[in-house]
């Protein structure tokens, strides 16, 4: 059986790619994708420890996390749409002020 450490390593790699994307990308859609990577890294961890301890809770939790990620994407895409309407661009650094 594959040791749990390798799953954790994969998860860390996916998480760091997500963090890199959040730090560097300015396109809101790619930004959202990076946040998804971070969330999925957490899912890999949950499933890995579910296998480690022979306990189903981690797998059920990761299913719920996926549902939450879907909800987050729905709201995120709505926000991207509003961003595009207001600034004619999906660059997240454009929207630096909160104004009516």
């Amino acid at each position: 059986m594959i040791p749990t450490q390798y799953y954790l390593l994969l998860s860390a790699a996916v998480f760091c790619i997500g963090v890199f994307g959040v730090l560097t990308r300015r396109n809101a859609l790619v930004f959202l994708m990076s946040v998804e990577l971070i969330l999925n890294a957490a899912n890999i961890n949950l499933v890995a420890f579910s296998l480690q301890y022979g306990n189903l809770s981690g797998q059920v939790f990761s299913l719920f996390t996926m549902a939450l990620a879907a909800a987050e994407v729905a709201v995120g895409l709505g926000i991207v749409l509003v961003l595009y309407r207001n600034f004619s661009d999906v660059d997240v650094t454009e929207a630096t002020t909160m104004r009516w």
């Binding site: 059986m1 594959i2 040791p3 749990t4 450490q5 954790l8 390593l9 860390a12 790699a13 998480f15 760091c16 790619i17 963090v19 890199f20 730090l23 296998l51 480690q52 301890y53 022979g54």
Partner: peptide, 21 residues
């Protein structure tokens, strides 16, 4: 990001976990 990954990798690979059940 790479520094964070190095820290994670060092922590995970030195952690002593029992064999997966």
């Amino acid at each position: 990001a790479i520094g964070l990954f190095v820290v994670f990798a060092a922590t995970f690979l030195t952690a002593e976990l029992p064999d997966p059940s």
